[in-house]
Write a protein that binds this DNA or RNA. Structure first.
Length: 409
RNA sequence: GUGGCCGUAGCUCAGCCUGGUAGAGCGCCUGGUUGUGGUCCAGGAGGUCGCGGGUUCGAACCCCGUCGGCCACCCCA
């Protein structure tokens, strides 16, 4: 094999790509029904945009960024996520007036060792609700992500929810957590010991330390009354919206710009080390960190690659409505015009261009996953074609003037 | 970054231990069926055995190196 796709990247070809087309349509439609507008930003940004706000874990995270120096000597980075870009774009455009509701869709890049559901280029669909401090915004965003998974038939999804409080709550919590970890020093892994002072919250979701940290204090124990009220509002809203959720006190975020609500979507039947198919959080501090006016914000990002892996295997839907089969070479011109007519009517139609046996043309129709084969032969002179249902083998004689409505019925 | 497993036909893999001129199933093409796919039967095409080096009369097979894939750890903005 001379050339292959770069490590950790995937080619998406038909017929498998049909699932991607569907996922995109469903997302665009859903986001627009909730009042969000398409928000497109560059796939690369100045490196500083991403390293700012990442905070304590900068070194680790920069190892996972696709960073390079361009011909003008600028350090740029392929976007590892979209939130920073969207916020930057909104600040650049003058900031939020009232509220801003945007959605995006596209590839993101992280330099990591690939495994199931973890690629170097991967796709996310996300939404950002900017300028709204009310817990109703959190609820709407959580709901939208949940609805998306439902509409794509991802089975058995659990919403895991937590509140990590505001900055002041977290620094108090952090102190107490470090004290706790120090008391368990002997039971902790080497990694945990190394990280307990720079990013202690991350120790909570280390697999190796699950037993040692059982009983550790959790962020929820340190919420200010404002943060606690907000969290209560989110929970009440989810119950009203009939979104099932589970509070997971150890669910945290490593980055400084998150506050209060954080959540993840986990399909319980999806077996992979990388099990979350999406997640979000409130990030009220981010605007100021990026030089904008203080602006409350909440958003979610859905991982398309994992969602498509976790989906119920969709029944193989036809990719074409009709495949025209030329049974009589003398009617080639008519058959060509017939295909064009079907396409003009909005139907997905195709045919074999060259001179092939009827048998070979049927085979091609089958492979193209057409719903019907339409035979153009001697019946054409009577103004009819033979329509064969390729799934059942049933055949019908259909008048030409009715064929479009017949196929669409 | 660390570890385990794996690279042989388009795909999934057997052969490797015990070196002797490369196999199966599926897929593909043709025919049986001069207008019928998906089933059945017959025939056929298709491979620098990931790459480089070494050992040997001889290497898919043994040795060394290298590249790639998968999964887990790690990380998860």
């Amino acid at each position: 094999m001379t050339y292959r796709a770069p490590k950790g990247t995937d080619d998406i070809l038909p017929p498998a790509s049909a699932a991607w087309v569907e996922a995109e349509r469903v997302f665009f439609d859903l986001a627009e029904r909730y009042g969000y507008g398409l928000t497109l930003t560059p796939m690369f940004e100045s490196t500083e945009l991403f390293s700012r706000g990442i905070g304590e874990d900068t070194e680790v995270v920069e190892k996972q960024m696709y960073t390079f120096v361009d011909k003008g000597g600028r350090s740029v980075t392929l976007r590892p996520e979209a939130t920073a870009s969207v916020v930057r774009a909104v600040i650049q455009a003058g900031g939020v007036v009232g509220t801003f509701k945007g959605f995006y869709w596209g590839p993101m890049f992280r330099y990591e060792r690939p495994q199931k559901g973890r690629r170097r280029q991967f796709s996310q669909a996300g939404i950002e609700y900017l300028g709204e401090p009310d817990p109703g915004a959190d609820v709407e965003v959580i709901e939208l992500g949940y609805r998306y998974l439902q509409e794509l038939d991802v089975p058995n999804v659990e919403v895991r929810l937590n509140s990590i409080g505001d900055a002041a709550d977290r620094s108090e919590y952090r102190k107490r957590l470090i004290e706790f970890l120090e008391s368990r020093r002997d039971d902790l892994s080497e990694d945990a010991l190394r990280r307990m002072y720079d990013n202690p919250m991350r120790v909570l979701d280390s697999k190796a330390d699950a037993d040692a940290v059982a009983g550790a204090p959790t962020p929820a124990d340190f919420l200010s009354s404002e943060a606690a009220d907000h969290f209560a509002g989110v929970r009440a809203g989810l119950e009203e919206a009939d979104i099932p959720y589970r509070i997971v006190p150890t669910l945290v975020r490593g980055l400084d710009y998150y506050n209060r609500t954080v959540w993840e979507y986990v399909p319980l039947d999806f077996e992979a080390a990388q099990s979350s198919v999406g997640g979000g959080g409130r990030y009220d501090p981010l605007f100021e960190m990026l030089g904008g006016k203080p602006t409350p914000a909440v958003g979610v990002a859905m991982g398309l690659d994992r969602i498509l892996l976790a989906r119920n295997e969709a029944a193989q839907k036809p990719l074409l409505d009709a495949y025209v089969i030329l049974a009589d070479p003398d009617r080639r011109t008519e058959a060509t015009e017939f295909v064009r007519r079907l396409r003009d009517a909005g139907l997905r139609a195709d045919r074999t261009v060259g001179d092939r046996s009827v048998k070979a043309q049927f085979k091609a129709a089958d492979r193209a996953r057409a719903a019907y084969a339409l035979v153009v032969g001697e019946e054409w002179d009577e103004g009819r074609v033979t329509a064969r249902d390729l799934a059942t083998g049933e055949q019908f004689s259909v008048a030409l003037e009715e064929i479009e409505t017949w196929l669409k019925r």
